[in-house]
Amino acid sequence: MIEFREVTKQFAGGPPVLNGITLAVPDGELVVLIGPSGSGKSTLMRLVNRLIEPTSGSVWVDGRNVADVNVVELRRNIGYVIQSVGLFPHLTVAQNVELVPSITGVPAAQRRRRAEDLLHLMGLEPAAYAERYPRQLSGGQQQRVGIARALAADPAYLLMDEPFSALDPITREALQEQFLQLKRELGQTILFVTHDVEEAVRLGDHICLLGDGVIQQFGPPDELLHRPANDFVASFMGDSRELLRLGLRTAADYMRPPDPAARGQVGLDWPADRALSALLGAGGAAMQVVAPSGEVVGSLRLSDFAGSSQAQQPAGEPGA
């Protein structure tokens, strides 16, 4: 668990950037820090691996005050991924991934195997990429290597500062998808900074919205979208927030029993926004909902979205 207790940070000569932040990132969860540019997201994140020291308050990782932990030891247990990636230009992809294990003295063969596994997991075939230099990779490929490098020493924690923000939308979405899968497999505790609401909603187990030096709202994505705590949150999450909420659900959450008059099909496991889009495209007629097996399991019409969105909870968020 990562815990911030009454953390305040003031840079010399400026107003406080963070003002009494108390926040916990539970084990195995991904918490997104979001907020306008300059709201202190990176500052808050960099307090965890002590790239910055707090003015007052404390940061706790694994039940230990980070101020009492050897800084090198602390950082080796916390993977760090940044927007500009920061690969070493003179090392090959494999050498970059093996950087930390090579310093901590992991045997060459063992760390090489680990690097290849991680590259494979990140969708870069080692045979094709291991011996390349960073400048020979696209931005998306570089960030895949950056994530593999952060995971190489198998840290329990990951800090990610806008890792996908510099990528084009298609690459970004592919990486988000792959990253979600990776997260499920590896189970790290992750603090993730972004300024992109869609990304926050897609990736976060919880979202922490920073503004004016304080936490404006902390909660599951659905809560920030559906019950914004104040005008700041409502305006930051945007006017399309009810549409964004649909992305948290599937067609299954909205469907009614099969309707013989329905024409056209949507998938049972489609995100609800995709199903809605299909319905709009069909001109408002009812459509069949089809399970992956091909069996018709229900039907959907436009009015289903208006009625049930208040009552239903997204899958996997009981009682949220």
Binding site: V71, E73, R75, R76, G79, I82, G86, R149
Partner: peptide, 9 residues
């Protein structure tokens, strides 16, 4: 790159 190196320990 220096920031990443520092952050990686």
């Amino acid at each position: 790159v220096l920031d990443a190196a520092r952050g990686l320990g």
